[in-house]
Design a protein around this nucleic acid. Structure first.
Lengths: 189, 189
DNA sequence: TCGCTTAGAAAGGTTTGTGTATCTAAAGAT
DNA sequence: ATCTTTAGATACACAAACCTTTCTAAGCGA
């Protein structure tokens, strides 16, 4: 049964397979052979596109980051807006955060550089979503502008990231609420 | 020039070499050969003690964790006590935190288990130091006991850990002060 | 329909790391 | 002084992963 994939469709399939390998086994166990097998193809197909492992990992991460765009919630209250964002990140990005961390750590330890250019788009993305939410919250009188320093604005997301990075699992919902109710909201009112 | 190491001294040297390899190249680049070379010995010496790579990594981490014991500061103010602890962790443990994270992530992604038993002693250690500090702060009226939930007590340390895990470098001192003055202290008073 | 591009199979040379076997001589014990 | 243990050197068998080479035939465009 032939049914050969070509061009862009094949490329997507390869990157998806690479991503699955990465999340299934981690960077250390990530091999070209495994990607080839998972994608149901053969080595030359992979090597025609990516010259080596790091090249493929890089593009895989960019590919996944591109597919993950945050939507800005507007529920009417700051609490629900932030919780909605946290829940969305928690549900969709915990694999991404974990793998990125491992990859970036290895990468950094190897090269001494910090490839922030990979993460910057996603970061800017989140910062914009957050600023829109906070502007409305200030307008409604739910938060005071002078309390919204960069650190405070990033705080709930930093704590969620920390939770994911130390537990290697999505955070349970009560933890998200704890972060918002016990730490974040008291600081901005 | 003979001068052969034996017994415990040799074992320490091997574990130190393994730790250096781990921090220099990360878990992914960690090889038995490299440890052998760095320690200036030969394969059988290593294999007589540890049957494989994971075995050695495990013992290396335990070895390093054992050497790292926190002292409880008592400067007279909560702010300085917490800052002192943060500074000490920041200065001595950033390699440990980074490597542990990388190792634990790979380990977890590979095995599906979470080797918390490795980290628990260090964690209990820190919790005790912190509780002693907080008890004095409450007695001095610097913090209210009802604000000191588990999450708040862990907060400055979680934020420092997050900082280290995302930057792969010790945090600059103004970040430590920011964490204490802008986030932690307002929440406990 | 013909022809160009390229997916995918198969096989292999190379490198890198694992773990073992064998031997020598050094350090400490008796 | 002799004996026992074991550090350290060397060599190697084995496996895994890399990446390449060569070939066949499928899919698309002209």
């Amino acid at each position: 049964m032939p049914e050969r994939r070509r061009g862009a469709a094949l490329e997507q399939a390869l990157l998806d397979a690479a991503w699955d390998e990465l999340t299934a086994g981690g960077y250390a166990r990530f091999t070209m052979d495994a990607v080839v097998k998972r994608a149901g193809t053969s080595p030359p197909v992979l090597y025609r596109r990516w010259s080596d492992r790091d090249d493929l990992v890089r593009d895989t991460l960019i590919h996944v980051l591109r597919k993950n765009v945050l939507e800005v919630p507007d529920t009417g209250t700051l609490r629900e807006d932030v919780l909605t964002l946290l829940r969305h990140i928690n549900a969709t990005r915990f694999r991404l955060i974990t793998v990125m961390s491992v990859y970036l750590a290895s990468y950094h330890l190897e090269t001494g550089t910090s490839p922030t250019e990979l993460l910057d788009p996603a970061d800017t993305d989140r910062r914009q979503a957050v600023d829109a939410i906070f502007a409305r919250a200030v307008a409604r009188g739910e938060a005071k502008a002078e309390h919204l320093t960069d650190r405070i604005k990033a705080l709930p997301f930093d704590l969620l990231r920390h939770e994911i990075l130390t537990k290697y699992a999505p955070a349970p919902d009560h933890v998200l609420e704890e972060i918002v109710d016990e730490v974040f909201l008291p600081l901005v009112r």
